[in-house]
Structures are given as structure tokens and as C-alpha cells.
Amino acid sequence: MITVESLTKSYGGYTAVDHVSFTAAPGRVTGFLGPNGAGKSTTMRIMAGLTEPSSGSAHILGRRFAELPNPGREVGVLLDASAQHAGRTGREVLRINARLMGLPGSRVDEMLDAVGLTEEESLRRVRNYSLGMRQRLGIASALLGDPEVLILDEPANGLDPAGIRWMRDLLRGFADGGGTVLLSSHLLNEIEVVADDIVVIGLGRIVASGTKADLLASAETLVRADDLRGLHAALVGAGLASTPADGALLVSGDAGHIGRIAFAAGIAVTELRAADGARLEEMFLELTASTAREGNAA
């Protein structure tokens, strides 16, 4: 469980994080989404006690990060997979972290197995790791203490498609086991596939948050008929907004109602279903349009 309340961080006159509040619940994957420079990483650094907030608070399992007696045993944090000593072997990185958390050395081998790093790879120095291997090492380090909460900043960066799939399954499994996962990404599809809840941030402010189902739900129904023109007329006649789209109509109304109108008009319907949900990308661009760098002339 992560609770962020009215978190604010200003640098001089610039407000990087502006009254951000949200909750990441146990048993769920919460996607933290936003364009570059939106304040995702700053928010996560504050959660991990690396940056002092100007005001507001972030609590993990009911405590401030600095109050956790042995943070690695309760929260797995991966903020930047490249932030490892280049001259240390992957295995040594895990060994010192395990030692610090008070874990047996066998836990290191378990985690290397869990993230798919081989014995030979674990003995290489991190300098010679690809970004994907560093991500795996970072995940291993985050999971080492068998934490209840995971905070991951862009964990899919540098992973190949198989790696991304693996990461997704791993996070899903972790959440299904009752864990709390907060992961940030600018990779929309990644979040769309894995997240249960989504928090969208733009220029330091939360612009949307809720369950993915709610955020992506569409109020429109897609209907197809051979006599599209006649159906359109009937629907408009019944007071429904209908827009032709690609050999079908997008209608704002529920399927039952539309079916009855078509039946009454004597038109055979060939397809009738809820329209595809708004794609996350569209929502994302829409919600952040006013705050995006690429922003329109307005």
C-alpha cells in the first residue's frame, strides 16, 4: 500500500510536483503514466526518501520511507537500472544487498534464477551488462528482500519483447499474490496491458486517475448493417448521436436500445457491440495536451 498525499516539490520558482495525491492498492498494479519531465521520477524519489518534499507526504505500508526499519524487506525499489557500480559483478551487487538486509546467501541464487541471469552472467562485471541485463539485475535486487511493495521507474526500458512479456507476468504474479506494484512508464502500451489502476501525471499534476476499466470505458456502441444509411436515419430520428465510421456507425447509446430501434425500423443488424475502448494513447494525449511540450498553438 502506497499513499501519497498532496505531495509538492518546488525548485526555486519551478514546481516539479504539484499537490500530487493517489493511492496504490495491494493486489493491484498501478501504472504511473506521464510524458518526459512530468514529475514521475521526482515523485518516486520522494517516495524512496531520496528527495525531501517541499510539502505533503508519501507513506509506504503506513510509514514514511525513512521510518522503515529495514526498507529492503518491505519495499523493492528500482529507480534506475544503470545506477550500479560498473566494476562490481552482478552477483556481488546482490550479495552485498542481501547481506545488508540480513538475508542468507542462497537468496542471491534464487533471485538470479528468478530473473533469468545465468551463473556466467552473474560473474561478469556490470560494465559489460546490456541495459536489459541491468534491468533484470535491478529487479532481482528489488525482489531480494521479498517485499510487499514494488516501486519501479521505467522497468521495461531496454528489455526485448520477450523480456517485456516476462516483466509483465512477473508484476502480475506479484500483485496477484497480494503485493502492491507501482510502475512508471512512458510506454503507453506497456501500462495499458499490465496495469489495473492508472495515474496520469502532466507537468507535475495528476490529470487523471482511476481503474483502467473506468478510464478506458467507452460510452459508444458500434453497429453495422447492410442498410447503413437507413439505420443512421432511424437512430438520428430516435434522438441518438450517430457517426459513420469505417462501414459502421458509432452510436452513443446502449446496444439494447439501438437493437430495438433497428428492429422497429425493419433493418437487419449484422454487428452490434460496445465500441473499442478509447485507446490509452488517445486519452493520454488528450489529457496531457494542455501540458505537453509539443502542445498545440494554444
Binding site: P26, G27, P69, E148, G178, D276
Partner: peptide, 27 residues
């Protein structure tokens, strides 16, 4: 995105199965 994929993702989370844990010893 097909509806099928969406609905399987949207299934309510199975809820916390973890038993409440004791706070670990300080380092």
C-alpha cells in the same frame, strides 16, 4: 486492443492473499 484482452485484464484483482507481516528487525 480487443475486448477480450481488455476484459481479462480488468478482472477484479484477487485481493491480498498475503498474511499481514511483522515489521522486520532494524538493520
Amino acid at each position: 486492443m480487443s475486448t477480450e484482452t481488455l476484459s481479462s485484464d480488468v478482472l477484479p484483482a484477487t485481493g491480498p492473499r498475503r498474511v499481514p507481516r511483522r515489521s522486520p528487525e532494524p538493520i
